[in-house]
Structures are given as structure tokens and as C-alpha cells.
Amino acid sequence: MLQMNESDLHLRLSEFSFERRFDDRGAIQWMQENWSKSFMFSALYAAMVFGGQHYMKPRPKLDLRLPLVLWSLSLAVFSIIGAVRTGSYMLHILSSSGFRRSICDQSFYNGPVSKFWAYAFVLSKAPELGDTAFIVLRKQKLLFLHWYHHITVLLYSWYSYKDMVAGGGWFMTMNYTVHALMYSYYAVRAASLRVPRPFAVLITSAQIAQMVMGLTVSGLVYRWMQQGDCPSRMDNITWATLMYLSYLLLFSNFFYQTYLRRVAKTKTQ
């Protein structure tokens, strides 16, 4: 199994005290014992989504502009910091040890800087379900892509963290980065500020690129797992592949329907 020299990483990467003190072993043990609670959160979330829509049907929509700004802004700040911290770790691995080790090395889960943000990432998937409450209470259109994505990311993240599977550093860093863009966009829009259309196109393009890279990483983990130095399991690779493939299809369809088909319709009118 590939493993970075932790003392070397401590020398090269500066840590905050809370990152250094973080008990990664306790976090992994807790997740191994409690990861199945993600199914409970998912079930409660589904009840909130569809029960909430039924409850709001005869009632007027709520504005919630200020709470939405604060919610999106807080998640944007969290994602930006997470992207910077995990990104610095991944860049160090790439520059010092190469692309293969950046995928197969498990040190992302227990290394300096990244260990706290890896755990923060998987835990954040539960409160992020609150995104949908704003859609339901404001009586906006709820896409299948939205709630399906929330549920499956929560389940897969908790399921994978407990086993410290290969590829996690790429999966988490990419998601942090895309969410930094996405929640910043949501915060600005919620504040009624105008955002140029190309920025929205950029975000969806980044999401599609994330799914392509997710499939690529999953394929490489499968290939290198056969050689014994890329720790994962066939069931995890299968779920990751199915998840990223479904996301790729759904986000590509969203991109077509939102940015290409509407433009084509406008030109023909």
C-alpha cells in the first residue's frame, strides 16, 4: 500500500492547530460504527421533500431571501476553505509523488491538513440536505437531479470514508471546488445581484467535468487495485461508477435543456 511519510508532509505543509489536533482515528472509527445512519438521514430527507411539498401546496410561498443568502454564503465560505486546504494537500502529493500516488495513497484520510477536511466533507453532506428546504418552502421547481444527487452523495461519502478507499482525495477536492463556485453563485443570486450568464454555464460545465474525472479516477482505481497498491473494493468501485455515470447523464441533460435548447428556441422565434 502506498503511504506518504507523514513527517515530510508536516515539514512542507503548514497546519492550523485544530487540524493538527484532529483525531482522525476516532473519526474513522465513529464512521465505521455509524455510517448506516446516512440511510436514516436520507429517509428523513425524502419525507421532508415530498411531505413538505404536499404541505406547501395550498399555502403561499415564503420569501426567505435573507436566510437563503446567509445559508448559501456560509456553505460557500466552508467550501472555499475546504477547497484551498485539500487542494494544497493534493498539489503537494502530485508534485512530490505523482498522479498515481495522488489517487492510491490513503494518507488523505489521516495526513496533515487533509484529515480534518476529509471528515468535515463527509459530515457536511447531512446539513447540505437543507438546501432543499428553501426550494420547497419557496415553492420552486424541484428537479429529480437535485434530490437524487443529495441522497446519493450522502450515502456514498459515508460508505466510502469508513473504508478509506482510494480516490477519495480527488473526489472530495473536486466537490469542494465545484461547491465553492456553486454556493458563491447561489449567495449572489439570493442577494438579488445580477450574475453574468457565462458564470452559470461555467458552474454546470465544471460539474460535468467533475463527473468525467470521477469516472476516470474510478477506472484507474479498478485498474491499479489489481496490482495490489490501490486499496478499494469492487463493490465500492461499482457504486462510484454508477453514481458518477448517472450524474454525468443528468448534468449533461440539464446543460442541454438549460443552455443549448433554450438558445435554439430563442433563435427560431
Rank of each mutant, 00 (worst) to 15 (best):
H10R: 15
H10T: 10
L11T: 15
L13E: 10
F16N: 15
E19H: 06
F22S: 06
E33D: 14
E33S: 14
M40G: 08
M40Y: 08
A46I: 10
A46P: 07
A47I: 07
G51F: 00
G51P: 05
G52E: 01
H54I: 10
R59W: 01
L68M: 12
L68I: 01
V77N: 05
A83K: 04
G87M: 02
G87A: 05
L94W: 04
R101Y: 12
R101T: 11
S102F: 01
C104K: 02
S107H: 05
Y109R: 05
Y109A: 04
W117T: 02
Y119Q: 10
V122I: 08
S124R: 02
P127Q: 06
T132A: 05
T132I: 02
A133R: 00
A133K: 03
F134P: 01
V136I: 01
K139N: 06
Q140A: 09
L143E: 13
L145Y: 00
Y148Q: 12
V153I: 15
W158T: 04
K162I: 07
K162L: 06
V165W: 02
A166V: 04
G167K: 02
G169P: 00
T173G: 12
M174H: 07
H179M: 11
A190I: 03
L202H: 11
A206H: 05
Q207P: 05
V212L: 13
V217I: 12
S218P: 09
L220A: 10
M225E: 14
Q226T: 09
C230Q: 04
C230V: 06
M234D: 14
N236I: 08
I237H: 03
A240D: 09
S246L: 06
Q257T: 11
K267M: 03
K267F: 00
Q269E: 11
